[in-house]
Amino acid sequence: MDSSLRTRFDAGMRTLLIPDPYGHGSAPIGRDEDRREATVSGVVIRYYVSRSVLTVTVVRVVFL
């Protein structure tokens, strides 16, 4: 990921996804509401949300 995309991605994560990991166009994967997929700054990510410790863990990043 080049530096300009990384900067936009990091900003998108901070301002959109981290404050509301269940919103902003994210969708559950299967029946598990905590396993999610979203597009942030043009980057498709799959992630898990841990409600008990307020943590978002990105497990897959796809960008072109």
Rank of each mutant, 00 (worst) to 15 (best):
R35M: 03
G12F: 11
T55Y: 09
V53F: 09
P28G: 01
V61A: 10
V61D: 11
R6G: 08
R35P: 00
D2W: 03
V59G: 11
R31I: 04
I29N: 01
V58E: 00
R14W: 12
L16C: 08
I45R: 01
R8A: 07
G23F: 09
I18T: 02
A38F: 07
H24P: 07
T57I: 11
G30C: 04
E37L: 10
I45Y: 06
R35G: 00
G12S: 05
R36V: 03
V59A: 08
R6Y: 02
S52M: 13
L17H: 06
G12T: 07
V43N: 03
S52A: 14
M1H: 12
V58R: 00
L64W: 08
D10F: 09
V43M: 06
I45S: 00
P28A: 11
I45G: 02
R31G: 15
R14H: 11
Y47H: 01
V61I: 15
T57K: 03
R14E: 04
S50R: 12
I29C: 10
S52H: 15
A27M: 15
V61Y: 11
A38M: 10
S3M: 12
I29G: 02
P19T: 12
D32M: 03
L17G: 06
R8E: 06
T7A: 14
V56G: 03
V56P: 05
F9C: 02
R8D: 01
S50H: 07
D10T: 14
V56F: 02
P21G: 05
D2L: 13
I29A: 07
T57P: 01
L5K: 08
V56D: 01
S50I: 10
R8G: 04
V40S: 03
E37Q: 14
T7W: 04
Y47T: 00
E33K: 14
V56N: 05
A38G: 05
S4H: 04
R31W: 10
R6L: 11
D34K: 07
V56Y: 06
D32A: 00
T15Y: 15
V49T: 10
G25T: 09
T55N: 06
M13E: 03
S26A: 07
